[in-house]
């Protein structure tokens, strides 16, 4: 079977980046859908990514066990995290940090905990998991990612987890056979719209062997899209129409309920 040229290039690039030993495996993945439509009955979605681990050359032997880490990254946003403190008996925002162009959605799915898959140095280099993903903060005039136990960073990640926008699941990847796997990607109901990248990394013995990526798109569709676009692109008309609707409904009620 002839391997397409782009796949070779991608694997070569990934191999170089990971400085792994001789490239022996490649990943073939397929996402259940590349387009998630947010319609009026949208209550969240669960996407499935199937994949297999295949020998790069016909006679290369496969290893007995693999690890897999899939990182799903949503469109970038800039968010400000604020901290309250008690001042004169009441709680006031006293301090804040801006997180610049961080993922609005971040799902890290693996077959077992990240710390068991790779050591700290590798995890940091490859940005594996919520602890090692780079979250740039603006601290005064500096732009930097703080250490993972920085209180602002910690609370930012926790708040995003509570909002179901960030998640790290050590059982998000299931190996159906030693070389065939399934990744379930949960998207919450309030998932941001935009383009998402899905990055799949294959590990064995703490080393990255191969990586591949794909993408998906979350879009509003139908009526939702129509209303959203009208509100964004024709704000004034949208506002006038909404106000007219309010007055019409108000007037209609007096006609329906008129008792005198």
């Amino acid at each position: 079977m002839r391997v397409p040229a782009f796949a070779i290039a991608m694997i070569a690039a990934a191999g170089a980046a990971a400085s792994a030993p001789a490239q022996a495996e490649k990943l073939v993945v397929s996402l259940s859908t590349h387009r998630v439509a947010v319609t009026s009955n949208f209550i969240g979605a669960e996407l499935v990514l199937f994949g297999t681990i295949e020998p790069d050359a016909p006679r290369t032997a496969l290893r007995s066990s693999y690890d897999l880490v899939t990182t799903v990254t949503g469109p970038n946003v800039t968010l400000r995290t604020r901290r309250k403190e008690r001042v004169l008996g009441i709680w006031v925002n006293v301090d804040s940090r801006e997180f610049i162009r961080v993922p609005s959605y971040l799902g890290v799915l693996s077959n077992r905990p990240i710390q068991q898959i790779a050591d700290t140095a590798t995890a940091r280099k490859l940005q594996l998991g919520l602890n090692y993903i780079i979250l740039t903060q603006r601290i005064g005039t500096d732009f930097a990612d703080a250490v993972s136990d920085d209180p602002f960073r910690l609370n930012f990640v926790n708040l995003q987890k509570e909002a179901e926008q960030y998640r790290e699941e050590a059982n998000g990847v299931t190996f159906l056979t030693p070389t065939v796997f399934r990744v379930s990607i949960p998207l919450p109901a309030n998932v941001p719209t935009g383009t998402y990248t899905v990055d799949v990394k294959l590990f064995a013995g703490g080393q990255m062997l191969s990586r591949t990526n794909t993408a998906l798109e979350v879009i509003k569709s139908g009526f939702e899209q129509y209303v959203f676009e009208a509100s964004q692109n024709h704000g004034l008309i949208y506002g006038v129409v909404t106000a007219m609707m309010a007055l019409l409904i108000g007037w209609f009620a007096t006609v329906v309920f008129r008792r005198d």
């Binding site: 469109p75 970038n76 946003v77 800039t78 968010l79 400000r80 995290t81 604020r82 901290r83 309250k84 403190e85 008996g89 009441i90 709680w91 925002n93 801006e98 609005s104 602002f152 609370n155 930012f156 926790n158 708040l159 995003q160 909002a163 941001p192 935009g194």
Partner: peptide, 18 residues
């Protein structure tokens, strides 16, 4: 709400999308 200790001392506000 002002006086009692909030559930979370931290809160997030969206500054800019995309």
């Amino acid at each position: 709400d002002l006086v009692v200790i909030p559930d979370d001392l931290y809160s997030i506000r969206v500054v800019r999308s995309q």
